[in-house]
Structures are given as structure tokens and as C-alpha cells.
Amino acid sequence: MVTECSGLLDFLTLKLTNQSRNNIKSLLTHRQVNVDGRVVTQHDFPLKEEQTVRIVRSVIRGQKEKDVLQILYEDADLIVINKPAGLLAITDNKNGVSAYHLLTDYVRRANPKARIFIVHRLDRDTSGVLMFAKNEKLKLALQDNWGGLVTQRGYVAIVEGRLKEKSGRIRSWLKETKTLLVYSSPKVGDGLEAITNYQVINETQDYSLLNIQLETGRKNQIRVHMKELGHSVVGDTKYGARTNPLKRLGLHAHKLEFRHPFANQLLCFETEVPENFKALIKL
């Protein structure tokens, strides 16, 4: 957080005491510095009080945007990324590109025998916070008590239309057809319980930006609940959307908070609302 006005390079030099001035200039040149969620490369970019500056490390394979992973956090046990929309979390195709394969290549640069383990998933077209374990012991501990360890799962979504009720709690029981379409059963207890809390952040004549908090994490839960609310997620033709203004699914996993099963430490990972979401909703 910026506490007084200064140039960006001067601010970084003051904060990154373990980096040389040339290394810091390299961060700027390689587009690894964000100011309030926007990439900045200008050395003398004027910073104002209360702006947020972040250093972003990337794993790059190829030139396509979907092949770029933003690493939010890494230690001996975990890697947390900001997955782009359009990239699978994992694929069975050995030649296919996925977050799992890109990160496996990344960790093996330092140790050819290193492995990563998937803990949870995001849909291909959903962007946002995605966590991987770097050892099987942690993977199993997280998966065995995911519901008990995860304290917050927050999403932002852009949906079609304006909601009459600006906040609410949706509870239903989800089932899946043979064609992999998820729907709510009208019978209590018939399926997997799913609970979604939502609140309108902002709205235009045509769209609403929602803050969503999950109490459960079922397959396609948000997408199904929004459709049944009468306000499908934009770009989600599978669940009733009529418009696609973002040219992608309007769903982003912006926050994941959980308690480390071994260290008993509360960890929280958070990303900004995507810039194209803000532009559409006029934030």
C-alpha cells in the first residue's frame, strides 16, 4: 500500500531492499508490476496515496495469453495461481495444455523429480484463484477435510439483467443428467446440497456485478443457481445466457481462504476484479 506520493521506481527501490535497481527495472520491463490491478512499465509512474502495488511472477510457455500463469503465492508446500479463462485446470490429454502441465514444467526446472497435485478445480471458462499442493501428504489432508478447512470461497460474476432482490441466499439439491447438465431437484435431499450467497455490487441497465460467497462447492453451482434465479452468467450458453459481451464466461474466483492443515495458519489469497468486468459494469 502506498503511503505517500512518489515515482514507481523509487517506491519499489525502497520496498524491495533485497533487489538491485537493475533487477527492479527488469520487473517493470517484463510487465511484472501491477498498480491497482493494472500493468505499469513506466519508471516514473506517479503513485498516489492508498494505491496498491503488486509484483506478479509469471510462468510462460508459448505466446498465447492462455498459456501465461500468474503465480500469486509459492512456498515449499503450495502454489497458488490466477488461472486465466479458457485454460483447463487439468487434462488427460498428454499433449494438451493445462494449468497442471504448465506448473509441472515450472517446478521441474529446479528439480526434475518435482511433482504437483491438484486440490480443487475451476471450470475451463472460469478464471481466478486455483491452488495446487507440492506434496501428496498436503493434497490428501486438504481434500479429506476441504469443507472444514476452507473458510471463504468468493467469486465475482456478471449476470444478465438487474436483480429485484439485491442480496439473497439460494439453497437447492443438485443433480446431473446423462448429458452432464446440472440442475436443481425439486425434492429436498434429492441430490447434493448447494448453498450460494450473493450481493449486487453494481448494475447497469443490462447487467449486474455480483459478489458471491459459497457455503458449498458443487459442480456448476453458481451457474445453475444464477440461471434458476432468472439471471444467467453472461457468456454461459449452457445455462441459458443470451449475451456474451466479455467473449468469455463472466465468472471469476477472486478469493480463497483456508486453514493450513499442518501449520494451523489461516491463509488468504485474493485477486482483483478483472478489468473487462469493471469496464462492462462501468466501475
Rank of each mutant, 00 (worst) to 15 (best):
V107S: 02
L87W: 03
V59N: 13
F269M: 05
V33A: 02
L122R: 02
L9M: 10
S172V: 00
K187Q: 13
I55K: 01
L87A: 06
K164C: 07
V188T: 14
E165T: 13
R121G: 01
V159K: 03
A157L: 01
L122C: 05
E165L: 09
A253V: 04
F258I: 13
R162M: 09
N244P: 08
R223Q: 02
V59I: 15
K137M: 14
K278C: 09
T41Y: 08
T151L: 11
G189C: 09
V129M: 06
T126M: 02
T41C: 13
R171W: 05
F262I: 03
D190L: 07
Q265V: 15
A253C: 05
A263W: 10
V200P: 03
V59F: 10
D36E: 15
V159H: 03
R121T: 06
V59H: 15
V56T: 10
V224C: 01
R259V: 15
Y183P: 00
N135Q: 08
S6G: 12
K247T: 02
R242Y: 13
L78C: 08
E165I: 08
I24W: 09
V33D: 07
A99C: 04
I55V: 13
N145I: 01
V68D: 05
L88V: 07
E257C: 12
P274V: 05
K166G: 10
F132Q: 05
K15A: 08
I81T: 01
F269R: 01
D236N: 06
V40H: 04
V234L: 03
L140W: 14
E136F: 14
E65F: 04
A157P: 04
E272N: 11
R109K: 14
G62R: 09
N202F: 14
L14W: 05
F277Q: 09
E215G: 02
L209H: 09
G191S: 01
K64C: 05
V182Q: 01
L246H: 12
L16T: 11
E136S: 14
P84F: 06
D36N: 15
E272G: 10
L180P: 00
R121L: 03
Y106N: 03
D236W: 01
V33F: 00
L142T: 11
A99S: 14
E275Q: 14
R124A: 02
Q42G: 00
P186W: 10
L229M: 07
Q51C: 00
D75N: 12
L246I: 03
L163T: 13
Y198P: 11
K64G: 06
K255V: 07
N18P: 02
D67A: 14
R109L: 09
D105N: 14
S232H: 06
Q221C: 00
K137I: 13
T271P: 04
K219S: 01
A141S: 14
G62M: 07
H43Y: 15
I170M: 10
G191L: 06
N34M: 15
Q221T: 00
Q199E: 15
L214V: 07
R218G: 00
L266P: 00
R169T: 15
V40Q: 12
